[in-house]
Design a protein around this nucleic acid. Structure first.
Length: 536
RNA sequence: GCUCUUGUAGCUCAGGGGUAGAGCACUUCCUUGGUAAGGAAGAGGUCAUGGGUUCAAAUCCCAUCAAGAGCUCCA
């Protein structure tokens, strides 16, 4: 039903409690335009729609949660209560859906992270600061080794830089004070603080003097680029040097709003598998393609194929960005062309750009259905300009290099969180914190178990022996719950024949297999980064 | 940051104005057992923290901290 504005206003006004929000919404509708209204029984209400044609189509429903939302999605507006629910044609479908939700929760990386001893977050350390436990650290180290090998292959050089830098560095880059709200507060020298205190300096003055640059301090780095830029700028470069590709697993710190923090996916300290490429204008397309290729290698190696690609562009609000329009246009075109040549489906989203340039993001969903940005490739004409970067061209003149920021994982923390959910904690052999567990049937096989353990270790495999005085059933159960990919049962028979009774995570009981053959097989799985699916 | 919900043993949770509960995990003892849990005993808690109300607070109220969902934000 569509009503003329005049009539609708009168009708809403006639209600016992006309909602001021509804009235406000009506005010926003241009004069003369039809106003859409939906009706069910005696109840009718303003709504843009569309609706299901009849409520009989959703007989089975359940309210799931209640939360506030800012009116019109604007944080400066008051909040209104929103009730979330779901509806299905019949009860069977509803129950099925709810069971799916329950199953998904079991895969939640926060739950698995605790159960599998992968990471810990401690109140005394701080909100959003991840402690990687030994087992989680193994996974991370393997991921880093994997990416490092790819970097070497693709002509990157790895560097190390400190966790802090002077405020001036970030004034130049534009991070400070532009992003002050989302940074840990500056670190100021003690003697300076003491002196200011004696002078009776107020917090407001302190803040102001920091912002004006009258007072210097250090910042926990919110990004790695300024440090890498300084490495590039530390010497003269010829066009023959380019592209210079500097990579670092660099840890950065951002003061995320407390309500945003959760698990490993949104944190306050995280390590990017970062790199900055300094190249000539002409090299940009090729370099972007190289970066995109790297992201694709990473995702396909891990079997992550359910992702989408997003090109983040500027929106109309120029105050959010640095640099001139011409540079932005060139950068946006470069990204656009690179994605086109790769032939992956993508969406273009205005307002999703970084403040210094447009970007290509690889976005995946977590078990709850929330989207997270993982890999990212960003073209940047602006920071080279702010830092006055140059190289000497073939014409013996100074030229401005173009910078590309890229991180195939994004952050190790977020990637780990997504990966835990992706594998349900059952990591492929090359990543598994514990690749092999030997389960002796009785103490009589302990010595034999230890000898296999030693052979595994010599072969560079991660292996343990379950020496608990328990029945084999209990040991198997524990091994399965711990998602160990290979369980080796050894009893009298195996000792006699120099074999192990293999129970793999994927195939279950596989029967006896010679120790040499077994080791070879596992080593092959590690070498080839074989993806195992299912069988938690 | 905002709204709502939650915070009890290492974990998952029950309870609730009057002496703190279970299962799993842990420790010890018994069990030497062939593919998802053998048995028994024991230990473990300032009921998140700080205030308040009360004869009495883990329980009720307030604040703080933290967690969860959503919103806003995310270089």
């Amino acid at each position: 039903m569509a009503l003329a504005k005049q009539g609708r206003l009168a009708a809403l006004g006639a209600r016992a409690q006309p909602s001021k929000y509804k009235l406000d919404l009506i005010d926003d509708i241009p004069e003369g335009e039809a106003i859409s209204v939906y009706k069910n029984g005696d109840f009718w209400d303003l709504c843009a729609g569309p609706h299901v044609p009849r409520t009989g189509n959703c007989k089975a429903f359940k309210l799931l949660s209640v939360a506030a939302a800012y009116y019109k999605g604007d944080a400066s507006n008051p909040q209104v209560q929103r009730i979330y629910g779901t509806a299905f044609k019949n009860k069977t479908q509803l129950t099925e859906y709810l069971e799916q939700l329950e199953e998904a929760k079991k895969r939640d990386h926060r739950k698995l992270g605790r159960e599998l001893d992968l990471f810990h977050i401690d109140e005394d350390v701080g909100q959003g600061l991840i402690l990687w436990l030994p087992k989680g650290a193994v996974v991370r180290q393997e991921l880093q080794n994997f990416i490092s090998a790819e970097l070497t292959r693709q002509g990157y050089e790895q560097v190390f830089t400190p966790h802090i830098g002077k405020l001036d560095l970030y004034r130049t880059s534009g991070h400070f004070p532009y992003y002050s709200d989302s940074q840990y507060p500056p670190v100021i020298r003690r003697d300076q603080v003491d002196k200011l205190a004696k002078e009776g300096c107020t917090c407001a003055e302190l803040s102001n003097r920091l912002e004006q640059g009258e007072l210097d301090g250090y910042l926990l780095k919110p990004m790695n680029c300024p440090h890498h830029i300084k490495i590039f700028a530390s010497r003269m470069h010829s066009y023959r040097d380019l592209p210079v590709r500097l990579a670092e697993f660099g840890t950065v710190y951002r003061w995320e709003q407390s309500g945003e923090i959760g698990g490993m996916t949104r944190v306050r300290g995280f390590t990017q598998d970062d790199a900055h490429l300094f190249c000539t204008e002409a090299q940009v397309p090729h370099e972007i393609e190289g970066c995109l290729g790297l992201v694709k290698i990473v995702l396909s190696t891990l079997g992550i194929d359910d992702y989408r690609v997003r090109i983040g562009l500027r929106d109309a609000d120029a105050s959010k960005y640095v640099g001139d329009a011409e540079n932005w246009e060139r950068a946006e075109a470069a990204l656009h062309n690179a994605v086109e040549t790769l032939g992956v489906p993508y969406t273009e989203e205005p307002g999703e750009a970084a403040f210094y340039g447009p970007k290509i993001d690889f976005v995946v969903k977590d078990v709850i259905g929330r989207e997270w940005q993982l890999g990212t490739v960003q073209v940047d004409y602006n920071l080279p300009e702010r830092f006055g970067l140059t190289y000497i061209g073939a014409d013996n003149e100074k030229h401005r290099p173009v910078m590309i920021h890229r991180a195939p994982f994004g952050s190790m923390e977020r990637f780990m969180g997504v990966l835990i959910e992706h594998f349900e904690g059952a990591f492929p052999v090359w990543l598994a914190p514990e690749q092999i567990r030997i389960l002796p049937i009785t103490d009589a096989q302990l010595e034999y178990a230890e000898s296999i353990h030693a052979r595994c270790k010599d072969a560079g495999l991660r292996c343990t022996v379950d020496t608990q005085y328990e029945k084999i059933g209990a040991k198997i159960r524990r091994g399965r719950l711990d998602r160990v990919p290979h369980l080796c049962v050894v009893g009298e028979k195996e000792v006699d024949q120099n074999t192990v009774a293999l129970r793999s995570r994927q195939k279950g009981d596989e029967g006896a297999i010679g120790v040499d053959e077994f080791l070879e097989r596992v080593l092959k799985e590690v070498r080839e980064r074989t993806l195992t699916t299912g069988g938690k």
